[in-house]
Simulated assay, not measured.
Amino acid sequence: MSPANEAELAAMVADATDPLRIVGGGTRAIGAPAPGEVVSLAAMSGIELYEPGALTLLARAGTPLAEIEALLESEGQMLPFEPPHMGGLLGRDGTSTLGGVVATNAAGPRRLQAGACRDALIGVRFVDGSGTIVKNGGRVMKNVTGYDLVKLMAGSWGTLGVLSEVAFRVLPKLNGATLAVQSAGPSEAVDIMTKAMTSPFDVNGAGFVPGEAVYIRVEGLEASVAYRVGQLRDLIGGEIDVIDDPVASAKLWQRLRDVTDFAEGSAAVWRVSMKATDLLEQIEALEGAEYRLDWAGGLAWVRMVDGAAEADVVALHQALQAACLAKGGHATLMRARDAVLGQVPAFQPEAPGVARLSAGLRQKFDPRGVLNAGLMGA
């Protein structure tokens, strides 16, 4: 099914007697596929409103992310949270959509400064599990009335409602430069990133590629960038190269954002997020896997070696999720073979209190359990 507009979408959901599998562009799907008939939002595409002077954008949920980015680029603007394109890593064909970005609460390296998708989201329209059209937020940044369903929908993976329209605040696009700092290992890398992030020099990207470098990014006006790069070189010390060409710097962070280093092959890949010092312990204990660090060490992308036994993949997955549950983090199995996905949950199991809250929300928004059933343990 492919509704052409919000009214058709609402009717499809209201008439559903069996589960529905909600799909945007299909590039961010993880875990075992949710059961049910596919509802594709690809036809619900188009930009409703764009006001560069007001820094606001409103579009239908099925609008391709690339179309949004091209429009913003033409006006020297950007989505602040730097949404990653996951199709390459996950081996998915299709076109990433704006609704998919919101549903997964996507965010790239700039999350350190700009926050995640939900922090730039100012309004949503969606259809809940009963087929009711719900609107929350607005088209302007100063809108704080009522319950904040805007942030609730971001990261709900289509289990609470089917997004039909989303509104964002946008920001001016600025030039950047990157410091490539040599590091002996993950512990030293985290120390370097911590030093940069706690400095007054407005760093908005910090990541580590083992065997390559720690990367520190600053953005802004040309003179400001040059000054901050110089100050960071003095602060951090050691062997440092500077990538001061804005295009080259942007390509580097696109590579880190989209995890293109791990795109080849079919080996299992995890996205692990927790406090940097706790994550460091997990990284240093890894065997039979490689990793990349982002968010100043608070996010790790972990890839199992090619050809690893199914039992070893399951064991590492269970160990990562157990460590995250104990320390307040999240480990999500982003990519794996079907045999593994059939044995373990891709999403981090929720703590008992959170699970009760989640179940209550699902009961309110989707009492019949027809939206992406089972995707997040619902």
Rank of each mutant, 00 (worst) to 15 (best):
V229K: 02
A10F: 05
V225R: 02
G298L: 03
R110A: 01
P352I: 11
L58F: 05
Q231R: 15
R139E: 05
E212V: 15
V162E: 01
P64M: 10
A59N: 10
E222I: 06
A177C: 02
S2T: 15
V38A: 15
S164I: 04
V190W: 07
L71G: 07
G220A: 07
W301C: 03
A154H: 05
I216A: 00
G31M: 11
H330G: 12
A10K: 08
L58R: 15
R303W: 07
L41H: 05
I243W: 06
V124R: 00
Y227H: 13
P33A: 10
A285T: 03
P172K: 11
S273F: 06
D366L: 10
P64Q: 13
A326Y: 05
A359H: 14
I133S: 00
P349N: 12
Q282L: 05
A7W: 03
A106Y: 02
G146C: 14
L58Y: 06
R118A: 09
L152N: 12
G123W: 02
P345W: 06
L252G: 03
G155I: 10
G31H: 09
N175P: 00
D93A: 13
A154N: 04
A346K: 09
G297A: 03
A59C: 15
S74I: 07
S358T: 12
E239P: 01
G100H: 12
S45W: 03
G369C: 10
R169H: 09
K135C: 00
R292A: 10
R292E: 14
G31L: 13
A29I: 07
L149G: 07
M86C: 13
G62R: 02
V242I: 00
S187F: 00
A10R: 09
D18F: 04
G36Y: 06
M304Q: 14
F262M: 11
G87Q: 08
L316R: 09
A11T: 08
A70C: 00
E82G: 05
V302N: 03
L9I: 14
V134M: 15
S2M: 14
V225G: 04
A326I: 03
L252Q: 08
G31A: 13
G131V: 10
L293A: 04
L171S: 13
D234Y: 00
I133F: 00
C324Q: 07
L280N: 01
T97Y: 05
A189Q: 04
G99E: 01
G87S: 11
V229I: 11
V259Y: 02
M1T: 15
I68C: 08
K173F: 10
G298C: 04
V272D: 04
E37G: 13
G155C: 10
R110K: 07
A14Y: 00
V102C: 12
E219I: 06
E69S: 15
A154C: 04
E6M: 02
S164P: 06
P246Q: 09
G46T: 08
L341V: 07
E73S: 14
W295K: 05
P246M: 05
E287V: 01
V39Q: 05
A66C: 04
G307M: 12
I192Q: 13
A184H: 04
E281T: 11
G360E: 04
G94C: 12
T277S: 15
S2A: 15
V370K: 12
G220D: 07
E188T: 04
V134I: 15
I122C: 09
D261W: 04
A326S: 10
R118V: 06
V305C: 08
A331W: 06
E6T: 10
